[in-house]
Design a protein around this nucleic acid. Sequence first.
RNA 1: GCGCCCGUAGCUCAGUUGGAUAGAGCAUCGGAUUUCUAAUCCGGCGGUCGCGUGUUCGAAUCACGCCGGGCGCGCCA
Length: 548
Amino acid sequence: MSSVPEILSTVVERALGAPALIRPCADTKFGDYQANGIMAVAKQRKENPRALAEKIIPQLDLADICEPPTVAGAGFINFKLKPAFVASQLTGEPVPQVANPKTIVIDFSSPNVAKPMHVGHIRSTILGDCLARIGRFLGHRVITDNHIGDWGTQFGMLIVGWKKHRNDAALVADPITELERLYKFVNEHGDRDEAKTELVKLQQGDAENLAIWQKIIELSQHEFAKTYQRLGVTFDHTLGESFYNPQLPGVVADLRQRGIATESEGAICIFVPGSEAPLIIQKADGAFLYGTTDLATLKYRLDHWQPDEIIYVTDARQKQHFQQVFAAGKQWLSSVPDLRHVYFGSILGEDGKPLKTREGTPVKLAQLLDEAEERAFKFVTETKPDLPEATRREIARAVGIGAVKYADLSQNRTTDYIFSWAKMLAMTGNTAPYMQYAYVRVQSIFRKAGNPAVLGHIELTHPAELDLAKHILRFAETLDAVLADDKPNWLTSYLYELAGKFSAFYDSCPVLQTPEPTRSSRLALCRRTADVMKQGLNLLGIEVIEQM
RNA sequence: GCGCCCGUAGCUCAGUUGGAUAGAGCAUCGGAUUUCUAAUCCGGCGGUCGCGUGUUCGAAUCACGCCGGGCGCGCCA
């Protein structure tokens, strides 16, 4: 089964001989879909667009699908779907698998070892996970990779701190906090030369320092895993910076040999068009930089996974860096896939400045999730005091975590956004709880009906039924659009409208008290709505619940 | 100095890549329930899309120039 725009495109393009540019109608009074391509063609051929549209229409064989198409405005063709067609489509497979699956590597989250994950990691983690879920759902081969920061100069300080100032009890209780303390302590009070010496020993393979380094990574990974579990995020690989470390000298040598990298002011640099400053891959003192690691990583991924596309989910400030890395990669490697920097803005406090705690430190992710759950728990306890506490906790978990994720994903990722508890946990408006509630209402109907409702024959008569049904059909095209531009906020908008249309239907179309055959038809419509809601929220990484 | 991003309703934001009369939510005002969870639904109010010039059948969207805000720019990641 194809999406409706695909069906319309195929038919129109056959007659037009050019892209049909099928879009949802700007206003539903015009119809359901419109073709915008006629005007472009008319311009090119110097024809009258309305006349061209009139000429095209008789060639369109769409009698089973929509009412006779009409010409409007400057040369639009409008299509109004027939209710019988909509009903028939509802019983098919909701989302077709892509015809040509791609291999997509998604690099996201990337926290630093020995530091707590903070709000800065939310967007990368949630966005990357969402894109991975959608890619897989559509049938692509997706490989997720957490490129953690597990190598670098900070280990000099950490090793000194570990050896001389470690508090084992604190390390057991809260490893990351203790590691952070050690780093800060040495940074402020320690001997820089000593840190440098330990770093060099580590780099030269000193057994004791290597063991400490590994232990620090292990402790950190264990903490990361807790957060990922809460968020329901998984990775296929966690190949951090250190993994590529042994490859760096070879990468630099190869780049120099090919004349792509050159020495300048003592450093080894790659100059790429479009930016004045070079990408430095080896410092004057011989050390490598993250650009070096990024190039080594690119080569590794190409060699091992043969991707068609690599997505890097990092904040917008790294834009220039990735432009340089991508440009350098294209000079260096013969066949480079579609490299995408999926960037995002910062999370700001309500004062419009980067979100910080009262003490001025970044807000820790774990604490943020705690607070979200706690706020949701308070609310559930107020509204449903009779539910057992365990149930209320479970609802609060799904609602709280869902709210945080939804608030982030519903925002256009390219801009900064203002973090607001009130807004994300609001039970009205474009929020996760609103949608979870809509789902709960459908489930309640099924419970009262005494069965989960099967997908049977659907008859669309009431305007609210038809409106809801048409929107359900737009699920597939929405997911295509999301993945084409890496913009999950289009999916959240879709789901918000779905929940709204369901609520309107719920309000005006009784289900269980209605006589057959309408009762079964409406139950089937509820079934399909619930399935799409659940699937859609699942693609955002948000759980549904049975009651709230 | 060079470069990137942003500016849309009182507030927070969409706007599918140049399409029709610019849309939501919040706030505010009004209405709806003997019926499946009112955490709901329906309606009203609210706009010089920062400003200007241009490109064309058509511009919030593209180009150029201003104004205002954010960010990045050779040896951190």
